[in-house]
Design a protein around this nucleic acid. Structure first.
Length: 546
RNA sequence: GCUCCCUUAGCUCAAUGGAUAGAGCAGCAGCCUUCUAAGCUGUUGGUUGGAGGUUCGAAUCCUCCAGGGAGCGCCA
């Protein structure tokens, strides 16, 4: 489809020049109706105003001047208000099967690293407790978007930003300490604003096992904080690994203090008169950069607010030379990023390469029942529990199947269902079915030879299937541009539907038709490759049997 | 009070400003001596929350109103 569009674009532009029409930024569309062809162009309507002519007339003139070989396009129609509709020729479809078979696991991939370096930052939860289901959506989105960007030609690195200093972590450490002392038999009340979770007790118990009571009298309490951080990070990484997610870098906020990046930003803010002191605190003149009020960047205690390290951190991303910087946040952080962007702009940094993606919340359902996710001992408070319950494939698919800005209702009952109601199985079944066909072909002494005359494919279901194969590279590019994962899951379902229909309509292994059998086996293999490529991007298993 | 997101079929959701708003599920009616029926076919279902505006063309952009969610700290 991409090649065909590039070819059409070239021909159209030559024609525009020939007719002395102005260049206009028109679009290629995929019409909803078969009667409207395979590729549609809205060019004539867009030219109507500058040329002051009837769009259908313009379309007629362009169409008549176009010089397209009939091996690519079999028919051109002008329809509706002035759409130019192209019908793909069967020979171009047959060629597509060969292209897919030829490119295999590279089909749909833009040349590696041709777009430069991209960084995707996501999850970035501080090590104060296990990952929640909300983190799960972000983890899967971030990982899948990273894969999409990689397929779209970026050299992608995944980063996890965390803070193991500050108030939160001190409270965490003390939570473990109090639990530890309780385990030693001390009658101490557990403070209400401390971390209540069961995992705190586990960490305390481990310390008691290792050290007995020897930590009771120690002046230095950092051992509790350090133990908590180690254990919790271990747990977080385990959960992420369960979902197939591995980060390239973990960036510690503390490094920004040690390497002087924080001081450098403060220096710049003062030097450029972007900040002033009031009530003992340092205020960023953010109202000068479009915000509704000025914001504190250094508290009167001398401690920075989150904005300062965040600004310094983002400067390092820019310094590290990324061509594309993607930040993924939950909706609860919606108010924080404008401050950081304003700070970067104030310092003269180029924020154009930064894309901030905000995803909406997740609600767990068990059938029609909402699952409560309290912070105490609820059924499913952690991502680990969810992943273990419904499995990696379903977890990843369900988190990927909705637009990022849509609230996500995650139905665990549905995710567990092994039937046609569950989209994961519907798609995986298509892959398994193809593998079954190959086993059948082998046992019938008609194994796929690797070559065939694809001109024999002329059933409508075959054409529809090939047209879906053609779409894949464009789906990757569109998903990368929009930074949306549901476009891909949706495409996968379209492809599976086209395959299941083909499967019902066309017998593949037919001993009386060895030529057609080979052609159809080739089509099956091409379909299997594209499904496998899609599953690869989603990091969902492509099963050979089910 | 202010900022951001959402409101589309009974339910869950699609639709880079394009043509007759589409899928899945649920409902109804069918299809297995055939490569896996975890599949396929047909069918019911809509004033895109409401009112204006911009446009050749609006679910999509703008304004106002209603409803739901998330935020609005010298917490992150």
């Amino acid at each position: 489809m991409l090649n065909l569009e590039a070819y059409l674009k070239q021909q159209i532009e030559a024609t525009l020049q020939e007719l002395d029409y102005p260049y206009i930024d028109y679009q290629f569309d995929r019409p909803k109706l078969d009667a409207h062809g395979d590729i549609s162009v809205n060019l004539a309507m867009m030219l109507a105003r500058p040329l002051k002519q009837n769009p259908r007339q313009i379309a007629t003139q362009i169409t008549e001047s176009l010089n397209l070989g009939n091996e690519q396009i079999s028919k051109i129609d002008i329809a509706g208000p002035g759409f130019i509709n192209f019908f793909i020729a069967p020979s171009a479809l047959h060629k597509t099967v060969e292209t897919v078979l030829d490119q295999k696991d590279q089909y749909g991939r833009v040349e590696a690293n041709s777009k430069g370096k991209a960084q995707v930052e996501f999850v970035s939860a501080n090590p104060t407790g296990p990952l929640t289901v909300g983190h799960g959506r972000q983890a899967v989105l971030g990982d899948t978007i990273s894969n999409i960007l990689s397929w779209a030609g970026y050299d992608v690195s995944r980063e996890y930003y965390f803070n193991n200093a500050g108030r939160q972590m001190r409270v965490l450490g003390n939570s473990v300490r109090v639990r530890y002392l309780q385990l030693l038999g001390d009658e101490i009340e557990f403070p209400e604003d401390h971390y209540q979770g069961e995992y705190i007790r586990d960490i305390a118990a481990k310390l008691k096992d290792e050290h007995g009571g020897s930590l009771r009298d120690r002046e230095d309490h950092t051992i509790f904080k350090d133990a908590a951080e180690t254990e919790i990070f271990k747990d977080i990484k385990h959960t992420l690994a369960e979902l197939g997610i591995v980060f390239d870098t973990f960036y510690n906020e503390s490094d920004l203090y040690q390497n002087g990046k924080i001081d450098a930003v403060i220096g710049l803010f003062k030097e450029k008169d972007l900040a002033y002191e009031k009530d003992g605190a340092l205020w960023f003149r953010s109202t000068q950069f479009g915000l509704d009020q000025d914001r504190v960047i250094v508290k009167s205690t001398g401690e920075p607010t989150y904005r300062l390290p965040d600004i310094a951190y983002h400067r390092t991303k820019i310094e590290r030379g990324f061509d594309l910087i993607v930040d993924i946040f939950g909706a609860d952080h919606i108010a924080t990023y404008p401050d950081v962007m304003a700070g970067l702009k104030a310092l003269g940094d180029d924020t154009d390469k930064i894309r901030v993606l905000i995803h909406q919340f997740v609600t767990l359902f068990e059938g029609n029942e909402k699952v409560k996710m309290s912070t105490r001992k609820a059924n499913f408070e952690t991502l680990e529990d969810l992943a273990r319950d419904v499995g990696r494939d379903a977890t990843r698919w369900f988190f990927s199947m909705r637009s990022i800005q849509s609230h996500l209702n995650f139905d665990m009952k549905l995710a567990r269902t092994k039937s046609n109601e569950n989209p994961v199985y519907y798609n995986q079944y298509a892959h398994a079915r193809i593998c079954q066909i190959f086993r059948k072909a082998e046992s019938s002494d008609m194994a796929w030879s690797g070559k065939a005359d694809f001109g024999l494919l002329n059933h409508d279901s075959e054409f529809q299937l090939i047209k879906n194969l053609m779409r894949f590279p464009k789906v990757i590019l569109t998903s990368a541009r929009e930074m949306e994962t549901h476009l891909l899951t949706q495409y996968m379902s379209d492809l599976s539907t086209a395959f299941h229909k083909f499967y019902t309509d066309c017998i593949v292994v037919d001993s009386e038709n060895p030529g057609l059998t080979q052609a159809r086996l080739g089509l099956c293999e091409a379909t299997r490759l594209v499904l496998a490529n899609g599953f690869d991007v989603l990091n969902v298993t492509a099963p050979e049997t089910m």
